[in-house]
Amino acid sequence: MSRAKRSILSWLVLSPLIGITLLPFAVMISTSLKPHDEVLAYPPTWLPKRVAWENFVDMWDTVGFGQAAFNSVLIAVAATVLALVIAVPAAYAMSRLPMKGRGAYRQFLLVTQMLSPILLVLGLFRMAASIPLGEGTMADTRLGVIIVYAAYHLAFAVWMLASYFATIPADLEEAAWIDGASRGRAVLSVFLPLALPAIAVTGIVTFVASWNEFTVALTLLRDPSRLTLPLKVVNLVAGRYSVEWNQVMAATLLATLPVAVVFSLLQRYLVTGLTLGAVK
């Protein structure tokens, strides 16, 4: 089969799925650019008669987009850093150090990975509400959400990092010890640089998962100034007496684009990183 023929065939096979994949983006872009009166026009059209850039400006105010984006970034970054700080040593220990109960620890990780926070949401919520913090409790604080995210992404992070660390030859570190470096130094100067790509991939996945998370945030956060982007967007639709779809779509688009760009750029690394981590 020639390459041209194969290309046409491939695209033909993929086209339905590509269509469905792109549809939400098309809907987002189309609606986010429509002025208010055109959104509720019947029958609907794809192209706005007038491009309403003001939706983004209005949305910024009504949603409090800046504050919500800040919350999302803060929570996702902090959760990622916390998860990594705890997971990297654990993964190092798992892949390098002989220890008793490694098998049990692995099982433990697997089990925690199986537990989605939604199953424990009621308990999480009560836990947060029972821990005093400042004037109130851990419930309705960003810190609470950060800790929960970090805990639930931990298993995945350790798992992925450990499988990757296992592929880094131990000889290099050992060579460094012979050269007189302490174990800690060897890890810092030899091991970590090699492990960086894996840490980066794990970090990105954790970041995006935290960025997109909905249930825990929905349960723990309530103060409008602390809500994350997904909550803000869903709040615009649920329980309102009028839904400004053009603003909703503008918010969704703006919240999605940065992640989409990062994903497209890093897609190749993610594929290798994830398969390595998931299957090994």
């Binding site: 939400p24 997109n212 967007v233 869903v234 639709v237 779509m249 969704t252 919240a255 992640v259 989409a260």
Partner: peptide, 19 residues
């Protein structure tokens, strides 16, 4: 094609549901 097919990953599930 690969990039396009990976795109749904980047929308938060809750936002995808809204869209």
């Amino acid at each position: 094609a690969r990039t396009i097919l990976m795109l749904p990953w980047s929308i938060a599930l809750s936002m995808a549901a809204v869209v």
